[in-house]
Nucleic acid binder design. Sequence first.
DNA 1: CTATAACTGATACAAAGTATCATCACTAAC
DNA 2: GTTAGTGATGATACTTTGTATCAGTTATAG
Lengths: 141, 141
Amino acid sequence: MIPHKELLAVLEELGYRATAPRKAIAELLERKQDSFTAEALIEELPSVGRATVFRTIKLLLEAGAVCKLATIDGSQMYSLCRLGHHHHHSVCIQCGAVEEFKAAAVERLISAIGSEIPGEVIDHRIELYVICGSCPFHGSR
Amino acid sequence: MIPHKELLAVLEELGYRATAPRKAIAELLERKQDSFTAEALIEELPSVGRATVFRTIKLLLEAGAVCKLATIDGSQMYSLCRLGHHHHHSVCIQCGAVEEFKAAAVERLISAIGSEIPGEVIDHRIELYVICGSCPFHGSR
DNA sequence: CTATAACTGATACAAAGTATCATCACTAAC
DNA sequence: GTTAGTGATGATACTTTGTATCAGTTATAG
């Protein structure tokens, strides 16, 4: 488990320097509980260059501290990851809030499906699109 | 079930005209059993304009004859859909071949998970990344 | 056959990154 | 404390994957 507070520490442990732009990005991400897009970070951190934002996101992705996921319409977004290596996400299509979940049942099911199709299952991606409990239109459709 | 041969017919049934560019795209897609990218279509059909290729893909997506899916690295690809509305895909990470599957167990599991998380599950996305039976490196890692 | 609405390609634009590169800033050695 | 060297940075240009605009073309109903 990687607590949010240690985003910078995660990078330092991997041998990257704790520079001012990385600090700014880490602090902003730690305040966010929702998902975020690269463009949003760039807008909210005008002092940090575009390339550096993308570079830092990439480092965090590689470190496993951030996940790349798809919105319901297929565009890209990111989200901090608290759970360890393998997990899935539910994304609120109203407010963008992301919850992580692990479900042993999912993994069992995937391997069951894997044994029914030819070839070897290497990886999988599961995303749930929800209207979360705190969203106004929850239940109204 | 929407057989591949009727891609053009699918568009006509929706009130779209059967024009030469659409015919060319439909015929190319019907020959493909694999997934495809928009860029590949554009390259293979130099006589059809870039915008028209994207427009036609969009129409086929809306018609449900084509699905948009993500590769293991998160980039976009498309694939013809033979099964009806709701299904999932397995994508070979070596050759790009896409198989569709429906699994009632998946749907049951999703609704079980849905009842454990706050909010209402609207939709979900599941992709399996495999090395398919006809790929050379199958089993070698 | 013709009117007209749908469709097209060219082009410009947009969003989401990536590559290049001169400059800047840590860090470690002296 | 300087300084050399590597890592990191921002500006800029470029790439990829589309979307918007628009003048010109084409399918099709009548």
